[in-house]
Amino acid sequence: MAMLEGLLKWLFGKWQVLAVILYVAALLAHGHAQWNGGYNQAKAEGDQALAELKLKHAEQALQVTAESQQQLLQQVIRANQAEDLLLSTFDRHAEEVQLLKERIPNVTTIYRPTPGAAAQPIPHCVFTAGWLRDYNAALGVPAASSTTATSASAKAASAAPSTDAELLESGVTPADILAHAQDYGRWARDNLAQLNSLLDLQKD
């Protein structure tokens, strides 16, 4: 009988230990499951937040790109319009100069001494070599050297000051001067129109 009681006590003790082990194992399993669940939830939330952030950045980049393209398109349109206007201005200047050139023979060959008088040939007008030289100098045209002066007008324009050569006739006529003024005026007006076009583009 005593032996049976000892056996029962021993078995009871073993079951207590086993129960404790099972309880601890259950706690560990429960804790591990909770940790896994929390980790998975946190990871899912983090992945979602990262995906939303990436989407937001992508949308912002797309918007910036679209705005930049729109601004570039507007600039291209404005530049094309400015170019068209400038070319139209150049064409108008050329047409005006052509009309002036067509009038050169009439206004440089005959004149009326008084209103109602008959037209007569314009008296010979002399422009000296010194006058031509100084005219070119006033426009910033360098004097032709003796080695490069081949035409009569080039030689006249290279006449040295205070010499007999500067008082010789240059061969330049009023028609030549008028034609030169028309070409120079067209060049100046074209440059001014181009400068104003560039300034207008920079203002906007």
Rank of each mutant, 00 (worst) to 15 (best):
M1N: 05
M3Y: 00
M3N: 12
L7V: 10
L8Q: 07
Q16Y: 10
Q16A: 14
A19C: 07
L22E: 10
V24E: 12
A33Y: 08
N36F: 07
G38D: 07
Q41S: 04
K43T: 04
A44F: 14
D47A: 11
Q48T: 15
A51F: 12
A51M: 03
L53E: 06
H57G: 06
H57Y: 13
A61E: 11
L62Y: 11
Q63R: 12
V64K: 14
T65G: 11
E67H: 05
S68L: 14
Q69V: 09
L72S: 02
L73R: 13
V76D: 07
A82I: 05
D84P: 05
L85S: 14
E96G: 03
E102L: 15
R103S: 02
P105S: 02
T109V: 10
R112K: 11
I122P: 07
L132E: 05
L132W: 10
L132G: 09
N136R: 15
L139G: 14
A143W: 09
A143M: 15
K155C: 00
A156E: 04
T163H: 02
S170E: 00
G171E: 07
P174G: 00
A175P: 05
A175S: 06
A175E: 01
L178F: 01
H180Y: 12
A181Y: 11
D183P: 02
D183A: 05
R186W: 03
R186F: 03
L199Q: 01
L201P: 02
Q202S: 03
